[in-house]
Design a protein around this nucleic acid. Structure first.
Lengths: 204, 204
DNA sequence: TGCCTGACTGGCACCGGGTGCCAGTACACG
DNA sequence: CGTGTACTGGCACCCGGTGCCAGTCAGGCA
């Protein structure tokens, strides 16, 4: 029991140290660019050894991405266990609500800095696309449970995350005040993407 | 003029050497996994020095991806300069034709091996998604020229490449014989993604 | 109080990817 | 046959990442 208390203390301290290191690192990244900051620099600037840095973060990139697993878990939770008991509307309505909740909420300066870095450093963009890929898998899984065939669920989830990923990039580039409008437009694009597409059964 | 001829010879020799190195490397990657093959190993196995390897390929990953720029150019060419003069059908029809042409054509064993590697090694999957991102940019650019607003063009291109990227993964995982069917279904998903979505103007 | 144990840290050595630099070499050209 | 040029290989170096080991600090226990 005392053991449990000790563990919790340690855990909290670790979390605090992790956050401090991450904040120092992000500040350096924004000053000099991701590539131009070495792990040694981050480590000494945050008062730990290089070796210890790698015990807190598996890699240099993880400084920016180590919350991703928790974010994916949150998405899964919102999708599969809607807050108001039974959900209403269509599948797309539900996904739209969840995504608006995920992307639309206010974030601190740290998160916004991480977002800026992800947008402009190609290596980091690729890594952030992995988060989208995880989202896509979760959505496909959920759609499969809603009665869509596995193939269709995968493709729908792909289209869905494709539009939302593009929307997120647009919103980051154009500024926070456009975010809501862009997410809204992304959903509309998904609901009715190609209004001029003829019925495939009756080609003209 | 003689100078030009010499340049061409050299260029051709370089290209041949590059292909040989790439084939040796892919063979090693499939035997032992991407991470377990060092650049030294590739270099000695293909009879060049490590230093020269890095003159042919900017990085170890480039062995698998150095054709990407050419592929993107080809996509751009097919999209913007349709073979039969004026294109017919809707925007989506046109994109569908181009994509079927890009992904549906027969490929050699080397290309298929590269595809397998990309699918199963996470680091390589991320890198291959950059190709999709380039495709997405080209499609957005083309859609912009077809009269869609910049935002809408970006979002449409995102949805489009999202479904096709998912379809390409499915096809690679399920085998070549399903490729045509899956691409077809991806296009249908784009044309009519959410048949149960109510008209946004008349919510029920 | 003094010892033991276990978690954490830092330092060291090492590996592999990637680059700058320089010397050697092969080859077309005059 | 000399000469310039493009290519090569080797060396040294930087940086990200890991295995290993020794030191340290705290709490538990006799």
């Amino acid at each position: 029991m005392a053991d449990l208390v000790v563990r919790r203390m340690t855990e909290r301290n670790r979390e605090r140290a992790r956050r401090e290191i991450a904040e120092v690192a992000v500040r350096l990244f924004e000053q000099k660019g991701f590539h131009s900051v070495s792990v040694d620099e981050i480590a000494t600037a945050s008062g730990v050894s290089r070796r210890t840095f790698f015990r807190y973060f598996g890699s240099k990139e993880d400084v920016l991405f180590h919350e991703h697993a928790a974010i994916v878990d949150e998405l899964r939770h919102l999708l599969f266990e809607p807050r108001d008991g039974r959900r209403t509307g269509t599948d797309l309505d539900h996904i739209a609500r969840v995504m608006t909740a995920m992307f639309g909420r206010p974030r601190g300066e740290h998160d916004r800095a991480v977002n800026r870095l992800m947008l402009y450093e190609p290596a980091l963009r690729a890594r952030s696309d992995e988060l989208s890929a995880d989202f896509e898998r979760v959505i496909a899984e959920w759609l499969g449970g809603q009665g869509h065939s596995p193939t269709r669920a995968t493709l729908l989830a792909g289209a869905c995350m494709g539009a939302l990923r593009a929307g997120r990039r647009l919103a980051t580039a154009m500024g926070r005040e456009h975010a809501a409008r862009i997410i809204d437009e992304a959903i509309r694009v998904l609901a009715e993407p190609w209004p001029d597409t003829p019925d495939p059964q009756r080609p003209d």
